[in-house]
Design a protein around this nucleic acid. Structure first.
Lengths: 246, 246
DNA sequence: CGTACGTTTGATCTTTCTCAATAATGGTGG
DNA sequence: CCACCATTATTGAGAAAGATCAAACGTACG
């Protein structure tokens, strides 16, 4: 028997609760939010640089990325979003988006009208706080990525990304047992780490050769989380989660 | 005759107003905040990774940086803060700091008690919004830095940092005429761009040779802002300022 | 006026990129 | 269910950007 399926907004409530404790009443207010469910194809954009967001998408299933491009056209992926995460809260409060949000896989989002969010924030102080804390926690992830790309070598850099992804999946209880699927091509992995796809390929093989990861297709398994964490220089503090999972 | 000196909190109000329009009443409420003025030496920390912030420092004069270290000890500077900017708003709402905040030069901060900020936010919706927008705008800067470090070559990377700094100084009206002092050693410039000091030195010389910058000590001048902007791949959109200066 | 710190220079080494080709894979239409 | 096509992964060889090491030179300030 399957456990009852979580609704889109329950998922969001659980995510926000990860950063800031919410009462049952607050959770109920979130779940009561008006919204529209929408299916999205892989590669489709939910928001483009320069856009003015009028609704706020919450990722229900599938994976999304934030990215921006240099004038020369090379791409940097800025973060990966997993189910439960709000995609546009940050942009909802700014006049125009400074980056792109794109689906990595096909998936489902719940779109909440801007005004509904604004109303909620105005009347529920703890939810407002949770949204702020969520935004700040995401900013912390950007900082860690700057460190990752700026100061770690290719091996640690990739290992760090793998650790972060695994950790966040666990925290949202999205991975069955020890294995998870990394929904990215090596090209995308390269754009996330500031490397080239060729080099990513070689580094992945190196990690595998040294028994740090096992790969089958896009499935990844860490034989030893501890050793992996060490190579990745990964410490979950920057994720600002109240409860430590994994 | 000097214009009347701006107070610490007027400076903050002006900075917040840059991102979100504030009424005179809101400005007055900010200026009325309890606070303590403190002088800080160069290199002193206002906050360390792992700390729990109990007061919120606003930079009044001098410059500060955010940075974090890898396990191996190399440092990545995450952003530079200029007078008027709140140093700890982001950490005030999280349980512990995920990065260090350190003075780049000697300077002065105004320390506002945590509870005073919380009270202000609870009673002044527009100020709360301005603080949120300020935090989101700073997150946008982190994203741009990830792109900078991940996908631009050394020359553009350094040029971009120089442009950003010049632009933000102008927006806060902190630079006399066209010249400004970059308050960083080449070592620090290296830590901000993910390079080594030696290479930074060579790149700076290259920029100078090509007539893109003029240097005298730490003073920097751009003979042509347009050409510089072009080399830097700089577009101020990500700074989310309502009025464009410079 | 000396000492510590910051800048500059040269020589050499390494990591990572580039270019190019080949091999798997996965999804699609018939 | 199969053949085909487009994407993705893998491999090799050579080039380049940037790192490293070491030394010399400036300069600010106590």
């Amino acid at each position: 028997m399957e456990p009852p399926r979580e609704t889109a907004l329950e998922l969001l409530a659980r995510k926000l609760n990860l950063h800031h404790r919410l009462s049952d009443k607050d959770v109920a207010a979130i779940v009561a939010l008006p919204h529209r469910i929408r299916k999205l194809e892989a590669q489709s954009y939910t928001l483009r640089e320069g856009d003015r967001p009028e609704r706020c998408a919450v990722l229900v299933s599938g994976f999304a990325i934030r990215h921006k491009l240099t004038g020369e056209g090379s791409r940097q992926i800025l973060s990966i979003n997993i189910p439960g995460e709000p995609l546009d809260f940050q942009n909802t409060f700014l006049d125009e988006s400074d980056h792109n949000v794109q689906m990595l896989t096909r998936g489902v989002v719940a779109e909440i009208p801007r005004e509904a969010i604004e109303g909620l924030v105005a009347t529920h102080a703890e939810i407002a706080r949770a949204i702020l804390v969520n935004a700040l926690a995401e900013a912390s992830i950007f900082r860690e990525w700057t460190l990752n790309v700026g100061r770690r070598d290719a091996r640690s850099r990739i290992a760090h990304l793998l650790c972060e992804f695994a950790f966040r999946l666990s925290a949202q209880k999205l991975n069955r047992n020890e294995v998870y699927e990394l929904p990215m091509t090596q090209e995308q992995l390269a754009d996330a780490t500031g490397l080239t796809a060729v080099h990513v390929n070689r580094v992945l093989q190196g990690l595998q050769r040294d028994g740090l990861i096992e790969r089958d297709r896009r499935m990844i398994r860490f034989p030893s989380w501890l050793r992996m964490q060490d190579v990745a220089d990964f410490n979950s503090r920057y994720l600002h989660m109240r409860d430590l999972a994994a």
